[in-house]
Write a protein that binds this DNA or RNA. Structure first.
Lengths: 231, 231
DNA sequence: GCAAAAGTGTTTGGATTACACCCATGC
DNA sequence: GCATGGGTGTAATCCAAACACTTTTGC
């Protein structure tokens, strides 16, 4: 049936790579770690790890995210799978990429055997990464941008309380466009937001109002079919 | 570093599953094969195969498509990867799903060791499939529908020459909605189509005009940034 | 008062919707 | 001629873009 022995197929490994995106200073950034082991020693890389033989894939992604950031209960959508035969120098390793969207403010580096040095790097200014990680990261960024347009995931990146201008800046950065302030506000007027009395602090201009995403209201309205997020 | 021996990771296999969609009689259908071997003997399944140790993933998907349909040079976008530890009774096998959109008219079953019986089945009327193939197929169908909205992939499913009503039926079926004929035509008026002099044959009402998708024009206009497909 | 950014209103043209109507073909 | 779908026009409405304007804060 097969031209090689059936058992020869069971000689591959797979890994999970976890692309972690954040937003600060008007830029979307990815969390990179510096490798302290061969291969690609001293290269920056996307956090990832081999998957245990009995471990589920999303579970492995959660493990990596938790070990690195201490964060739990974050959605980890799948990006793509990368499996060129020669992508890993130590054997056939295919990797399934996941991505997480987190608030940089919530993030705190945890000690980890494979994460001595950790850094947020703007997606528009990436260094040369280990393995095929440049390709994995940029492919995943495209998938994330797709999601940004049709699901309210921008609020996973923005602080819990944000200004409308911060929100606008996120979209301007992602899609590399400039938007009109007045029109932006009209565009988002149907998104369920909670307006707080609280204002921005320590700015040398009129302080902006702070908003939160009204998740409960959003889910109700989506469920009833009366609303569909769209940017 | 790891709590198990490094070589123990290299004991998995992976497969590629290829979901093939087509459109006929106003319905979107998937190509299923009947398994003649264990496990899941006599169950219908999505065509798939183990990936050779030196084979690239898209190449494996192309191979499966070609063996089954004789078709080549078809885009095979990736869907998702499915890897629950117990999804395959014979060991840890994760599977990468791809999907192909083909014209049923171009399709011709080829003999194949693993495809004795082949059938097009409406995605709204699927039987119980082998393995986790119901889940794989429905997840892939959702991804395909996403693509249908923002890329001109409907023309990969429609005959080379199609009527506007056939096109409308495709969208009505996919999104489970009814559309106004006049408004549908206004909506698509920016899509570059070639109008042929040829008319529909053998219908017992006024024959409809036939159209083709103007791929060349489309790519030019997308490249210059003046056009973005949207349904 | 001035700089800087927050925040709002008006106009315009293009797209979406609902709906009505005419046209070509087979039988 | 009539049933069946093909094909088009109109009016009301909604939405997006462009742009101008007012407001509030720090210094």
């Amino acid at each position: 049936m097969y031209s090689i022995d059936f058992s020869a197929f069971f000689s591959s490994a797979f890994s999970v790579d976890c692309i972690i995106f954040g937003f600060s200073d008007g830029e979307i950034k990815a969390l990179l770690i510096k490798r302290s082991v061969k291969p690609f020693e001293n290269y920056w890389a996307v956090p990832g790890d081999l998957v245990y033989p009995n471990e589920d894939l999303p579970q492995a992604a959660e493990r990596i995210l938790f070990e690195l950031t201490g964060l739990k209960n974050i959605q980890l959508p799948q990006s793509q799978t990368f499996g060129k035969p020669n992508r890993h120098p130590q054997g056939r390793v295919i990797t399934i990429a996941f991505f997480a969207l987190i608030r940089i403010e919530d993030f705190e580096v945890k000690a980890s055997s494979w994460a001595e040095e950790v850094n947020w790097v703007s997606v528009k200014n990436l260094p040369e990464l280990a393995f095929d990680h440049n390709f994995i990261l940029s492919s995943t960024y495209e998938i994330f941008k797709q999601k940004l347009q049709y699901e309210p995931v921008c609020f996973d990146l923005l602080p819990e309380r944000f200004t409308l201008n911060e929100m606008q800046q996120l979209f301007e950065f992602a899609f590399n466009i400039e938007m009109d302030k007045a029109n932006f506000r009209k565009k988002i007027k149907n998104i369920p937001l909670i307006a707080h009395d609280e204002k921005q602090q320590n700015v040398k201009h009129r302080p902006a109002k702070l908003f939160s995403f009204d998740k409960v209201n959003y889910h109700e309205r989506v469920k009833s079919g009366e609303y569909q997020f769209k940017m």
